[in-house]
């Protein structure tokens, strides 16, 4: 379901990887229409996949009764998105660094690092169940 006013849109999706992939395709198509370059589309795609799958998998635990809520605005200037889940949240400040020697061989825990690496803004709400990300189309000085 999508609602919205002006260029801010709202959508909710089911907590599964098919719904995540469908929404990613749709948002990337909108970004491409706004002339984002290939590198930016790759960056946005990766951050979106990581954030949406985090919400569906870790936040909502793939519970079919829970949804992932997405609010976004895609303009020629920036790709701005907030992704919320219905989970208990987490403290991003306590996430272990996946690049440290003791974590390097762990199977999980790299999503937030990739989101931070590829987006210009990544911030979580206090509860830790909503992430806000921005990618500027032009490099920020």
């Amino acid at each position: 379901m999508t609602t919205g006013q002006s260029n801010r849109k709202f959508v909710t999706i089911a907590s599964n990887s098919t719904a995540v992939e469908r929404l990613c395709s749709r948002l990337l198509a909108e970004a491409a229409e706004n002339h984002y370059c290939e590198d930016h589309l790759f960056a946005i795609h990766l951050a979106l996949e990581e954030a949406l799958m985090n919400a569906a998998k870790h936040g909502n635990e793939m519970d079919p009764k829970k949804e992932v809520a997405v609010e976004y605005a895609i303009t020629p200037e920036k790709f701005d998105i907030s992704i919320s889940d219905q989970g208990p949240g987490f403290n991003p400040g306590t996430l272990p660094d996946p690049r440290s020697e003791e974590n390097l061989y762990k199977y999980e825990g790299r999503g937030v690092l990739l989101m931070r690496s590829y987006m210009d803004v990544v911030e979580f709400n206090e509860k830790g169940n909503c992430v806000h990300m921005i990618k500027y189309r032009a490099p920020q000085s």
Binding site: L46, E49, E50, Y105, Y107, G111, L114
Partner: peptide, 16 residues
């Protein structure tokens, strides 16, 4: 052309 951190986790599992 594209993969996510979940695929990286699988690669680590295979290498292990």
């Amino acid at each position: 052309q594209f993969l996510t951190s979940a695929a990286l986790g699988l690669l680590i599992r295979i290498s292990k």
